[in-house]
């Protein structure tokens, strides 16, 4: 029993000495453990991107690209309209064919 007590005491003293060693850096903030615990738990998430390039790009306005996009949109719109005309004969708006003498394409 005595032996066990002595060994436990020795262990406690050693631990205290070690703890003192860690915290005995000159001018170290006594609350450093708060930060230590906080970052030890999130360390893996924070260091996962190390040695990589995080892409946080933005879209810059480019005149030629905008023109190209407009052109593509126009072509797509026309194609869509042409298809709609083929598939649906009554697609043509009435006003295009309206005439006081000739009324057709009415439902």
């Amino acid at each position: 029993m005595r032996k066990l007590f002595i060994s436990l005491l020795f262990l406690l003293c050693a631990q205290l000495l070690m703890a003192q060693d860690v915290s005995s850096a000159d001018n170290q903030n006594p609350n450093y453990k708060v930060s230590l615990v906080k970052y030890q738990t999130t360390q893996e998430n924070l260091s996962g991107n190390m040695n990589t390039t995080v892409q946080n790009t933005y879209k810059a306005y480019d005149w030629t690209e905008a023109k190209e996009a407009q052109k593509k949109d126009r072509i797509a719109r026309r194609q869509e309209r042409a298809l709609a005309r083929i598939n649906n004969r009554s697609y043509f708006p009435d006003y295009l064919f309206w005439s006081p003498n000739c009324i057709y394409n009415r439902y």
Partner: peptide, 20 residues
Amino acid sequence: VIVGVVTNKSHEHIEAETFI
């Protein structure tokens, strides 16, 4: 030295590893 994160905030995809 340890290499950390390089953030690309430009308008293009740039891989910093080529010069790092």
